[in-house]
Simulated scan of single mutants.
Amino acid sequence: MLKLFSPIPPRCSFVGPTVTLRPPRRADLRHWIDIRSKSKTFLEPWEPAWSRDALTPGAYRRRVRRVAQEWRQGTSFGFFIWENGGGTLVGGITLTNVRHGVVESGSIGYWVGEPFIRRGYGGEAVQIILDFAFRKLNLHRVEAACLVDNHASRTLLIKAGFQAEGRARKYLCINGRWQDHDTFGILRTDDRPMVPVQDG
Rank of each mutant, 00 (worst) to 15 (best):
T18S: 15
T183G: 02
F5D: 11
V148E: 13
P23W: 05
Y60R: 06
P10N: 07
S105N: 13
D149L: 09
D53P: 01
Q163T: 00
A54R: 06
L2K: 15
E114L: 03
V90E: 05
V195Y: 11
E104F: 04
E165N: 03
R26E: 10
I35P: 00
P45E: 12
F80A: 06
E114H: 10
I117N: 07
V67G: 02
L157N: 04
C146Q: 11
I174R: 07
F5C: 09
L4V: 12
R118A: 13
K159C: 03
L43Q: 03
C12A: 11
A68W: 09
K170Y: 08
F162S: 06
L4R: 15
T41N: 12
G92T: 15
I117T: 12
P196I: 10
P115E: 10
V67D: 09
L21N: 05
F162N: 03
F14R: 11
G78A: 13
R25V: 01
W82N: 07
R63N: 08
Q198C: 07
R61S: 12
L137C: 02
R61I: 10
A168Y: 05
S51Q: 11
G200H: 13
E83G: 04
H31T: 00
I174S: 03
Y60D: 02
H151M: 13
H140Q: 14
Q73R: 15
W32P: 00
D191W: 14
G123S: 13
G176C: 06
Q179L: 15
S51N: 08
K38L: 08
G78E: 11
L147G: 08
K159D: 09
R135P: 00
G106V: 01
S76P: 03
S37I: 00
F134V: 00
G161K: 08
T41R: 12
D191V: 11
G122V: 14
R63L: 09
P10W: 14
W178T: 00
S6N: 07
R72V: 05
P196G: 02
D131E: 14
V19D: 11
S153W: 12
